[in-house]
Design a protein around this nucleic acid. Structure first.
Lengths: 219, 219
DNA sequence: ATATATATTTAGGCTCACCTAATATAATAT
DNA sequence: ATATTATATTAGGTGAGCCTAAATATATAT
């Protein structure tokens, strides 16, 4: 049995590791979970004793294979629920996070497999994040930030690197949606802002902070 | 904020009160919740301090209006989730309870109202139990146990009084479903077993223990 | 009315998941 | 290399929600 707290630690360790590809520090965990660092030290010792993570004193933690499986399963559940909330319950992509944070902890393999089927076995969630399969495997990613592209490249917007409400709402406000075609018409050398043609119609100027958070694939 | 434990106490007090129309005793609560009576005493004192219940020492508890609202809302959520599990996710009526017990604690009014709409504002759950509206109001019940009927009466099966897996599975095995027409063809005086014609086709003998748990309406 | 049985409460304790304050370790700057 | 700063750990403590054992209150039987 994994408690709610353990599940949140596992998920957070997974995400922090994914971001930095290094051991996850106590302070990073404390910051992410909004929990005092001393409490984190306490807790990760117990998790290490249960072999969910490996812990090197004062150095940080990383997931064991057992811990990774659990973490990925929580992410799988979170993303499937998000798909359901957006596709079936008419929620917007900036409204689902908090609810999915609760739903991801519901315990029932039958439920999650039924849900997966009900949704038509989606491969990505409403933000373009990959949904791992029941065995915890992810499809290969071929997307990169639009920032990595150059003038003349034509791309398709497939995901966001930043999940804050303000960024999601910025995109909604500017009518930029997953699946849109983004053609790079110009790049301003000074500030790395991109002149982009969207779906062969509208032209828009996107700041560096925006284009670095748009995951696209070449078309 | 109401904790998970509080929600379970509220729901259980509501159900026990509904069953006996009397103050709910410590021991009844302890038995239902599978918690030690001493712990229950502790907890109900705290709930009384929060005005969720009224508590008379050594006599029992009953819900305040605030407590009733919360309790009914949990029941509303539980039953809506059950409808979803059965109608949309292909679960059987004897498979949904445990999952709904978890889902009922998800906190989001928007979610539950969206869900209600998504389901087409159902009035009953898969067991025929009434679903209260968002204000905590129930429709009037006109159903009674089949046991109260007499020979010649024609009825429609609309709900179960008993929710155990064994009873639900008995009905499934015997192909008796909500909505079926049950015509009373005979009653054995000795043991109160009913000879019933189902949907004008099959004849079946139902024991007293069965017919007292079948809620029907006159047709 | 009294004895017995049952139900309830009190007292004291435990674990989980957090906290603060103090101390120790590691990283960085001089 | 040493001082300073940042990070991590230890020690001691808290509230929520449970526990057992002992004491008290209520209901039932004689």
């Amino acid at each position: 049995m994994t408690s709610l707290a353990e599940e949140n630690y596992l998920k957070t360790i997974y995400k922090l590791h994914e971001k930095n590809n290094a051991m996850v520090t106590t302070s990073a965990l404390a910051e992410s979970l909004q929990i005092n660092a001393a409490s984190v030290t306490d807790f990760i010792k117990k998790m290490a004793a249960k072999k969910l993570i490996t812990y090197q004193k004062s150095r940080g933690v990383s997931l064991t294979e057992a811990g990774r499986q659990l973490a990925v399963n929580i992410i799988r559940k979170h993303r499937l629920w998000e798909v359901w909330l957006v596709n079936n319950l008419a929620f917007k992509w900036d409204e689902v996070h908090e609810i999915a944070e609760q739903l991801e902890h519901i315990v029932s393999n039958e439920l999650i497999e039924h849900l997966d089927e009900h949704l038509g076995f989606p491969k990505t969630d409403p933000h373009g994040d990959l949904i791992p399969d029941a065995k915890g495997r992810f499809a290969k990613v071929s997307s990169k930030p639009l920032l990595d592209y150059k003038v003349g490249d034509n791309t398709k917007f497939v995901g966001v690197a930043e999940h804050s409400n303000s960024f999601l709402q910025y995109l909604t406000k500017n009518n930029i949606k997953l699946g849109d075609e983004l053609l790079v018409e110009g790049i301003e050398e000074f500030d790395n802002s991109f002149q982009v043609k969207i779906n062969r119609k509208e032209r828009k100027l996107l700041s560096k902070d925006v284009v670095k958070n748009l995951f696209v694939i070449t078309v």
